[in-house]
C-alpha cells in the first residue's frame, strides 16, 4: 500500500488522528475522495528550457528582480560527444504538510482546503521564519523597490499556483505558456483529470520525499544529478559560482545572512551587522511615517 492510499483509507475510517493536521492547515487531501487536491506534474522529457514559464510568472505578478516564484534549473550532463542538457522547473511544492505553515508565527501563511499554500501579506511581519522552514527554497522576501508601488514590499511571497486564475477556470500562467506541454496542472483527486491519469500511468518523483511534506509538484523523468541538493552546490560551474557571489555582493538585502565563498566568513558576519545597523534609520523613518499617518490621517 502506498502512502497516498494509506492516508486515503485512514481518512475514510475517520482515523484523523493519524494526520499531522497541526497549524492552520487543512489535513492532507491527496487521494481523499470528495476533496480537491490541485497539483502539478512536470514532464522533464518535454521541457526545452525556453524559460517562457519564468517570464509568464514574472509578467503575471510583477515579480521584482532577484527573486523568483518559479525558475528553471539547468545542468549539462555527460562528456563530449555524449552530452545532454537537462532542465528542472522549480516552484513552491504546495505541500500537503507544509513546514512553512506550521512555523509561521502570525498565521500569515496557510493551506487552502483545495491544496494551495498561500500567503496573506497583511499579516506577514517579514520575519522570514517560513523561508528558514521551506526545504525547497520556494519563498523570498519581496525587495523594497518594485515597479508597481501599490504591490506589497518587504513581506514574504511565493508561488500561489495562480489561484486567482484557477478559480476562474484558467490554468496557471506558467502552465498556459509552456510551449512543450511539460507542465500539467489539475485536480489530482479527480480520476478523469489529465493529471490524475498521468500520475497513474507514469513513474513520478517528488523533491526530498523523506521529509514527509507530501509535495504536490511531481516530476516525470527526473534526474538525480539535478534533483540532489548537495550536487546543486558542489557541481556548479565556476561561472555560476562567481555569478552567485557577485549577486550576494551587490544585493546586501535586509540583514540577510549571506556568506561569499572564497572570502572571510567573519568579514561577512561583520558586514551583515553593519548593513543591519545602517538600515535602522531608514526603517525607523518608515515606521514614523506610518505612525504619523495613523494619528493625523
Amino acid at each position: 500500500m502506498n502512502r497516498v492510499r494509506f492516508m486515503a483509507e485512514t481518512h475514510n475510517n475517520e482515523s484523523k488522528h493519524h494526520h499531522r493536521d497541526y497549524g492552520i492547515q487543512t489535513p492532507g487531501t491527496k487521494g481523499v475522495p470528495g476533496t480537491k487536491r490541485y497539483a502539478m506534474a512536470i514532464d522533464l522529457r518535454k521541457c526545452i528550457g525556453c524559460m517562457s514559464c519564468v517570464v509568464a510568472c514574472k509578467a503575471e505578478f510583477g515579480t521584482p528582480l532577484g527573486v523568483w516564484r518559479t525558475w528553471v534549473k539547468t545542468a549539462d550532463k555527460g562528456a563530449y560527444p555524449n552530452t545532454t542538457r537537462v532542465f528542472m522547473p522549480r516552484l513552491c511544492n504546495h505541500c500537503d504538510y507544509p513546514i512553512c505553515v506550521r512555523n509561521c508565527p502570525t498565521q500569515a501563511t496557510y493551506k487552502h482546503e483545495d491544496g494551495f499554500v498561500l500567503q496573506r501579506y497583511n499579516r506577514c511581519i517579514g520575519c522570514r521564519t517560513c523561508i528558514v522552514a521551506c526545504p525547497y527554497n520556494a519563498r523570498h522576501l519581496v525587495p523594497e523597490k518594485r515597479t508597481d508601488g501599490n504591490l506589497p514590499t518587504l513581506v514574504v511571497d511565493k508561488c500561489t499556483f495562480c489561484i486567482h486564475r484557477v478559480k476562474k477556470g484558467l490554468l496557471p500562467s506558467c502552465v498556459q505558456t509552456c510551449v512543450g506541454g511539460a507542465r500539467i496542472f489539475g485536480d489530482m483527486n479527480d480520476p478523469e483529470s489529465e493529471i490524475a491519469k498521468l500520475l497513474a500511468k507514469e513513474k513520478v518523483t517528488v523533491l526530498k520525499p523523506s521529509l514527509g511534506t507530501e509535495p504536490a509538484v511531481f516530476y516525470i523523468g527526473g534526474d538525480f544529478e539535478i534533483m540532489s541538493e548537495n550536487k546543486s552546490y558542489s557541481n556548479r560551474t565556476t561561472q555560476l559560482k562567481e555569478e552567485f557571489n557577485t549577486f550576494k555582493r551587490q544585493h546586501p538585502g535586509d540583514a540577510f545572512g549571506d556568506i561569499v565563498e572564497g572570502e572571510s566568513t567573519m568579514y561577512w558576519v561583520k558586514k551583515n551587522m553593519v548593513d543591519f545597523v545602517a538600515e535602522i534609520p531608514h526603517k525607523a523613518s518608515g515606521v514614523g511615517k506610518i505612525i504619523k499617518k495613523l494619528i493625523f490621517g
Binding site: A79, I131, L141, I226, Q239, L240, A255, D258, N272
Partner: peptide
Amino acid sequence: MDESVIISNAFHHAPWGTPITIY
C-alpha cells in the same frame, strides 16, 4: 559516466543573519 554540472539556477539569500546570531 561524468557527473553533470549545474549551469544555471536561481539565487537565494540566507534569510537570517548576524542580528539573529547576536540575539
